[in-house]
Amino acid sequence: MTIYKTTKYILLLVGSLMLNITWADDGSLFMLVGNCMGCHGPNGVSLGPATPNIAGMNPSTFVKAMEEFRDEERPSTVMRHIAKGYSDEDFQTMADYFVKQAFIPYQQTVDADKVKKGAKLHQKYCQKCHTNSVHTIVGSTNLAGQWMLYLQFTLVDIYTGVRDMPIRVLQIVENMVQLEGIESVDNLIHFYASQTEHK
């Protein structure tokens, strides 16, 4: 996988991104969320394939993720350190900010055959909770248009049990891999990455 190259398309889309903050305040909000953008990109729209896009992220999912990082209940590299530096109120403030930011999906190179297979897998195993692969439902993270590398990290963590998930989720993933083979994970990733038409 090419890790350095981001397509021109993405840069064009994001090229015009402006910071979306009301400056009536004293700058506290910007100084808080501004620190996230060094790694997660402008307004949370990550330009790097490993770091997830957090723009438009559901606020309760956001807060839960930060709590889990802070309490080291979810595998991470730097987030377990960073999350400990903020209060519950900070988590909520960040969540409220990022949900208001437009999720800009990526035009990643996907394999049409895998997308087709992934679509079926999504319908069969995931759709019940991750409604129509869209990122807007409660309790669901941004899947559609998310970076493939990040999706891969996440699915591998779930499948290998590194990341603690509700038993039902784990069972579904295990069940899928058992019935459809390990390549089903890759097919799903290609499908989600292909879903760049957002509602």
């Binding site: 990550s46 790097g48 394939p49 770091t51 590299t77």
Partner: peptide, 29 residues
């Protein structure tokens, strides 16, 4: 408490991810 290094004795997968994160970070910053 809010800070620290990568763990010692981490798995190859974790080290590899940090390499990917490094290049992702570079893009964004």
């Amino acid at each position: 408490g809010a800070g620290g290094l990568s763990p010692m004795d981490a798995s190859a997968e974790v080290r590899k991810r940090e390499m990917y994160y490094a290049h992702s970070w570079f893009k964004n910053i």
